[in-house]
Design a protein around this nucleic acid. Structure first.
Length: 414
RNA sequence: GUGGCUGUAGCUCAGUUGGUUAGAGCGCCGGUUUGUGGUACCGGAGGUCGCGGGUUCAAGUCCCGUUAGCCACCCCA
């Protein structure tokens, strides 16, 4: 371990990658606002209890992935591993439940102490959307449509597929879970160690096991469809019809389950096969029980979160840096004029690069390396005529322009 | 947390059966061109061979540990 290297699972986001991530966020932000969602932010850390109660004491995230700290006062706080719990907490803290329905979106860093691999870091960033106070399937449809729209806006929709499932309401889920536990308990000895563990903690997860032996047993397991009550079936049917009406294709995937306890009804995941094992890029579902679990008023909710790094990796295009205009003084005598000219141009809205040192050749080189669109050369000859030489760095053509006219002349390079 | 692969200049990599001053391309800096960039030519800087032990007359090359990355499991965005 060296103090000079970043902590495992973290990395610096340098300008090139930053531009991509910013493009992801800004595209998502713009589209979310079209759907009436408003941006908000919750703190990066919360009382540990917030996550423990909502994610469930047995989830992997709570049992082994949280960054938890003890404060001097004896309080336990945790860096957020996801943002839905924080939004739900904010709903109660701020008395916002008087204003339902509410549509929020957020973007920011999340922290999970997992083993890093491609598309998975310990500090990563999510963009998410939450719809609170809407119990109807129309909410689920809108949210999935929003997710699909953002993926389209990023140009990655074609590289993803939408996996869809229902977890039913709590009655259906309880009945199904009981049936699963009974079935798997009979085959307990033949299950993998992981799945024996799942049997205790989250039996639905066994359905999603990649272990071959497990899969054979899963093949004979009870099917959720048989345990869905009429209400749950109708709800799911409405979601599917809505997606079809919007032309959003989906694959029914009965093995798609959620690791987080508060999900019910719709569960969905936009996945890709371009990121190795970390295939989910935007995933979520309905969580009608969440707010109540936290001790708030019964409040239905639907939401999803997307991995910003994963989306950035999927977008293969380079985002070019903005092209500045270089202001270059030629000789000591013109530096003062260059400084004020740069100042004026910046206030007029131009991106100006004013070198700090070097002769004309060096400054031109630097301007070129930065991708400058044009260079404004200020020498004593020009100064005598109250003018500047403006060189187009793409064509190589240059022209003498009066200092009063520079702001207007440069409009062509906007 | 488990298993496998990898770690040589800023980047991508080459380094024969362990053997004298560790190489290339790109990038960087300088020069040809001290009022004009991109191309070309010339020159230069830059390496505790991830880190720590060990074996050996001798280790970038072999062994052990450790750390980081990657891949899979797990989990998930």
């Amino acid at each position: 371990m060296s103090a000079l290297q970043p902590v495992r699972g973290t990395r610096d986001i340098l300008p090139e990658e930053m531009r991509r991530q910013r493009a992801v966020i800004e595209t998502a932000r713009e589209i979310a606002e079209r759907y009436g969602y408003l941006e908000m932010a919750t703190p990066v850390f919360e009382f540990t209890e917030v996550f423990k109660r909502t994610l469930g004491d047995t989830s992997d995230i709570v049992t082994k992935e949280m960054y938890t700290f003890s404060m001097k006062e004896g309080e336990q706080i945790t860096l957020r591993p996801e943002n839905t719990a924080g939004v739900a907490r904010a709903l109660m803290s701020g008395g916002l439940s008087q204003q339902l329905p509410l549509k929020f979106f957020y973007a920011g860093p999340m922290f999970r102490h997992e083993r890093p691999q491609k598309g998975r870091q310990r500090q990563f960033h999510q963009f998410g959307a939450e719809l609170l106070g809407v119990p109807k399937a129309q909410g689920d449809i809108e949210l999935i449509a929003l997710g699909a729209h953002i993926l389209t806006g990023l140009g990655v929709y074609e590289n993803t597929s939408l996996e869809l499932n229902t977890l039913g309401d709590s009655d259906s889920r309880t009945a199904y879970r009981a049936a699963l536990v009974e079935y798997f308990s009979e085959h307990r000895a033949d299950l993998s160690n992981d799945s024996q563990d799942r049997l205790e903690r989250n039996p639905l997860r066994i359905l999603d096991s990649k272990n071959e032996g497990d899969r054979k047993i899963v093949a004979g397991a009870p099917v959720f469809g048989d345990y869905l009550n009429t209400e749950s079936q109708d709800f799911f049917a409405t979601v599917k019809e809505g997606l079809e009406a919007l032309g959003i294709a989906y694959n029914l995937n009965p093995r798609l389950v959620r690791g987080l306890d508060y999900y019910c009804h719709t569960a969905f995941e936009f996945t890709t096969d371009l990121l190795g094992a970390q295939s989910a890029v935007l995933a979520g579902g309905r969580y009608d029980g969440l707010v109540e679990t936290m001790g708030g008023p019964s409040t239905p909710g639907v939401g999803w979160a997307a991995g910003i790094e994963r989306l950035s990796m999927l977008m293969d295009k380079e985002i070019p840096a903005p092209r500045p205009i270089a202001v270059i003084p030629v000789g000591q005598a013109t530096e003062a004029t260059a400084l004020t000219l740069a100042h004026t141009l910046r206030h007029a809205g131009y991106g100006i690069e004013l070198g700090f040192s070097g002769n004309v050749g060096k400054r031109m080189k630097r301007a070129n390396k930065l991708g400058a669109r044009a260079a404004v050369l200020l020498g004593e000859d020009e100064l005598a005529k109250q003018s500047a030489t403006i060189r187009d760095l793409d064509s190589g053509e240059q022209e003498l322009v009066s200092l009063d006219a520079v702001v207007e002349y440069l409009v062509r390079y906007r």
